[in-house]
Nucleic acid binder design. Structure first.
Lengths: 340, 340
DNA sequence: GTATTTTGCGCAAACGTTTGAGTGTTGAAA
DNA sequence: TTTCAACACTCAAACGTTTGCGCAAAATAC
């Protein structure tokens, strides 16, 4: 139980001053060859490592970036974390992960906590509740203090900062166009209510493509899930009541519930009805039939977000502010839930 | 762009000393009513928050706990994180998540990094590579420095610390006994190679139950997956070559590959062959047929681990050391991949 | 032999806090 | 008037670093 070596202890042990030790270890030319060697040998022998906290205080930077996500038990978010982590580590940064659990209050709390010196900047995706409330003061406050923030996936125009998003509209268009190309005529949409930005945008893509292809839009074929906990039965009802030859769902789960409902109705996927999902997770790959889906490339988004943030962190203060939005391209992964 | 309020600035602004400000904010009786009110009002107005880094340095504790896991894109680990996070936040602790990506070197690096002042203690699950190498010096070093460590899931006897595990043997026994009770005679096992402790233990449970029930053990019915990337075809081969009426797989993926192989062979699950998995993830719930499985209760494990760690952190130093191992009970979740 | 430069090291301040000890003023008891 | 406690506040050290500056001794130059 040796209580961690410090400069002070090395100094005492070797009978030199603290600054001599510090300088020696940092190869300062101020220190003589001999003393330097002696100190370095000692430090190495006892495995000296500088205390990060003290360094953070001194340098006024922590070399850690905070990431706040709505939930962690969620494939997409974990891939984003993975992407952030890779880039961050490469650049010598640590990552702190906090969860908002989709709660506004917890998002605020986490942000405040991390903003008080724990991190140099943030990467975050807004909690659902925050987007409903449209209250972003906690974020503007943080940015006002000069801490860079990068928003991803669930972003919002009101906050001025770097952003990483996918083009939800184009992604949705790709999916629906694909269905049309394969001969589908009556394409159902299973989406979320509009305050979830991605639901709104993907719905827009759906509508645009239909219009571009002169397909009549039938409101009955559009389902907007209000209550996630009840989504399975809502989707079942929807499928039972409507006759469709294809379904575009805005996430994996909805797609799978749709497939289940279709199968229970006595129809086959993809022979009778094609289904396309969004987000390429475990389920999409492993489900039978495996899901044709729009891939979001979470890892790439995380990497981009980390790069944007670190860029801001290491930029000289003279350079003028400017915010970028990078759009990570989606692409359609063809599997077995759509006909060839 | 106001650069974050400090005690010093408040002191200058209100023309008192720094210590007066500090004491006033902490409601010290040393400070007069009037000044205290004035200072508190000012602090509130400008939203003063003490700097965590400075506090950490002063108090020699950070109120954060580090968690290092082999991979984050993995349902079980995310549920553990979720559990840790809940308890940690309740107790006023922050959580730093780092990934070892199953690499020994990265595990060492992360540990060193976090050990240098960033966290008060660790919760971790060993990287696969670490278990192969059987090199735990990085962990013993950390514990020698007096930092508490809690190991979970992938644990090892050589390290003396608190541990949270599930009873893999009992869990496996429950599963296999269940299959026997339902009338299965030839139960296949799909496991991992033995240096992955959980694979070994679950295999042991399988063997024990068969022995207890006087069922002959047929080595041909035991598959040990060496190369994860190739597991799908290995399992397909295994199923094709052997006649079984049930399969016990040590994780979700293996279970699903088994089901696929069984179906491709022209047999039905669960009518012809029952399948049981381990770990209750998204896939188990949503797959068709949904999987009967041994639930690991990741969230509960995380919560237990956090409690153990915080307990150690807040214990007075006089109290003597003792290490506990808590075993989180598994239970069988019956779904549709086994016959009734 | 003195004047100047170089070498090798220590001092002290700073980062933002907390806190025990010290200090000066007030008011009351002796 | 002296003594002393109570009050309200400030000083300074500490946590572990880094770094500009100062200073003595040694080495060089004149």
């Amino acid at each position: 139980m040796k209580p961690k070596l410090t400069l002070k202890q090395i100094a005492r042990e070797l009978d030199v001053s603290i600054s001599t030790v510090s300088k020696a270890l940092r190869d300062s030319s101020e220190i003589g060859e001999e003393t330097r060697k002696k100190i370095k040998a000692f430090a190495k022998l006892y495995n000296y490592r500088p205390n990060n906290i003290a360094l953070s205080l001194k340098n006024r930077k922590t070399k850690t970036i905070g990431i706040i996500i709505p939930e962690i038990v969620h494939y997409f978010f974990t891939t984003v974390i993975s992407g952030v982590e890779q880039v961050a580590n490469e650049m010598g940064y640590n990552v702190i992960v906090c969860l908002s659990n989709n709660s506004f209050d917890k998002e605020v709390l986490n942000l405040e906590m991390l903003a008080n010196g724990s991190t140099d900047g943030f990467i975050l995706s807004l909690a659902k509740e925050t987007m409903q409330k449209e209250d972003y003061h906690h974020l503007t406050e943080v940015t006002n203090q000069g801490m860079p923030v990068v928003l991803f996936d669930r972003v919002v125009d009101e906050i001025h900062c770097d952003k990483v998003i996918i083009d939800d509209v184009i992604g949705a268009k790709k999916a629906v166009q694909y269905l049309l190309d394969k001969g589908s005529k009556k394409i159902g949409l299973v989406s979320t209510v509009d305050y979830v930005s991605v639901g709104k945008l993907r719905t827009r893509g759906y509508l645009e493509v239909l219009r571009e292809n002169n397909v009549e839009i039938d409101d009955k074929l559009i389902l907007k899930i209000e209550d996630m906990d009840n989504s399975e039965t809502e989707i079942k009802d929807f499928i039972d009541k409507n006759e469709v030859d294809a379904v575009f769902a805005v996430n994996e789960h909805f797609a799978i519930y749709a497939i289940k409902a279709i199968q229970e109705k006595g129809l086959k996927v993809p022979e009778d009805v094609s289904v396309i999902g969004f987000t390429d997770g475990e389920l999409s790959k492993r489900f039978i039939p495996s899901l044709t889906t729009v891939s979001q490339h979470g890892e790439r988004m995380g990497a981009e977000a980390a790069r944007l943030l670190i860029d801001k962190l290491e930029r000289k203060p003279e350079e003028e502010e400017s915010y970028r939005t990078v759009i990570v391209e989606t692409n359609l992964i063809e599997r077995n839930s759509t006909k060839l």
